[in-house]
Amino acid sequence: MQKGSRMSRFLILFFASVLAVSFLFFPLVSLNSYESLNAVLAIVGPKSISTLDYEEGIERYKNLSRFFPSYRKKGSLHSQVIDFLIDRAVVDNAADEESIQVNEKRIEAEIQKRMEAQGITDLEQFKKSVQSQFNLPYDVWLEDLPYQIKKGQLLQIKVSPPLPSEQEVQAWYNKNKAKVGSEFKFREITLSPANASIDEETRVFNELTDIRNKSLKDPSFFKLVASGPRNESRYRLGGGLVNWVPTFELYKTQPITASVLTQVGGPGKISEVFRDDRKRYCIVLIEGMRPTPLDAVRKGIQGFLFREKEQTSFEDWVSTTRKNTTISIFDPIYIKEHNISNPEEKYNTD
């Protein structure tokens, strides 16, 4: 009995020891993993940047980096992400100092404001518009929206970008006439099928083709038909004449027609039969073509140049603010790449 008792006590002590070691070991693994994820890579003023921040920032940086100027992309991808997070922390700190709060309601209000500015009432349509405009997945754009709101507020409070001068507007116009495009004076004839049948579609197409062929021989025939009851254009009473419209303006309401005009050629040219945005069959006769005058695009150029100045001024402000912010770096890769001798001291890139 004594042997059995001693053996039982031995087994109990053995398994108790194993369990004790297990309880000691596994929490340490979990704790070490947690500490690894939360290791501090940098401290920017009152904010710290952890390994977890870095891991989450990699994909954001990859999605957004094409919008950054080339001089902001120094060193390896690893260091670029660290710099990206430092710059974002600088902006966050400044926003906190100015009591700029971006909560869920503020984000919802911003989305609603942007939808109204575009004349969009459906959220799904707005999402598609955002993806098309910024070439970004909507969820990536939405994740970055709080930063954009803070940036917009700081631009008003901290940054004062100068207005573009008349000389800058004129210089941009002279350099970018090809981008500005042309304006056209043209006549249009439009016909709609009575129904969606193939026979009806073919009939209308053939009718316009016949009008085009006759107009190529006698341009006055085009004007005659354009003034007649067969033409469904809203400009019919004026002989189908659309008087001097810049292509960028026409793109807003009739993108297909605008595209066709740029491909047809100069005055006297008649387009092939095409279907417009309203599924009507059309042909156009160009009567005049000239570079878009500066006065027609002045406001657009001023807005474009001002946005450029805003971006440049904001980048300069971030750079200056960063230089005046106490930054401590602890990331070994960044320290080695930038030859930082004392990471505990204030550090800023040139």
Rank of each mutant, 00 (worst) to 15 (best):
L261K: 03
R278P: 00
Q112H: 10
V180S: 07
N103W: 05
K74S: 13
L191T: 04
P137E: 09
Q131M: 13
V21Q: 02
A95C: 06
F134Q: 08
W172C: 00
F314W: 01
P146W: 05
V318H: 06
L237N: 13
V91E: 02
S22E: 08
N195M: 00
S160L: 10
I189C: 03
P332I: 02
K309D: 06
I86K: 04
G300R: 14
F304C: 01
L77Y: 00
S5Y: 13
D83A: 07
K185D: 15
V284W: 01
S22P: 00
V169L: 04
A94K: 09
L28G: 04
S5H: 09
R106P: 01
R307E: 12
R278A: 15
R234A: 12
G300W: 03
M115G: 08
N206P: 05
S36A: 15
S319D: 12
H338Q: 14
R9V: 14
N342L: 07
L64M: 14
E168F: 03
N135F: 10
N103P: 03
R275D: 04
T325D: 05
Y347K: 03
L41K: 15
V29Y: 07
L31S: 09
G239I: 10
L237S: 13
L85V: 07
F306P: 04
Q156A: 09
D316L: 08
P246N: 06
A194T: 12
G266N: 08
V44W: 03
Q2V: 11
L237R: 14
E166I: 02
S220C: 03
S30R: 10
R298M: 05
I12G: 11
T326F: 11
Q2S: 12
D122F: 06
I111H: 08
P161T: 00
K179Y: 05
N324I: 01
S160K: 13
I335W: 04
K269E: 15
P146G: 05
F14K: 09
N231M: 07
Q302S: 10
K336Y: 02
K179E: 10
V204E: 06
N135M: 09
F306E: 08
G300L: 08
E108G: 08
K128W: 04
Q112W: 04
N38S: 06
G238V: 06
S65Q: 14
G300E: 11
F184T: 04
N206V: 08
N135E: 11
Y173N: 03
L85F: 07
G181R: 01
P137N: 04
W172I: 00
G45E: 02
S132N: 14
M115T: 10
P255L: 07
V44P: 00
D331M: 04
I100Y: 06
V29N: 06
E188H: 10
R230L: 11
I270Y: 00
W244G: 06
P332Y: 00
L77F: 01
N103D: 15
Y347T: 11
R278S: 14
K158V: 01
S259K: 13
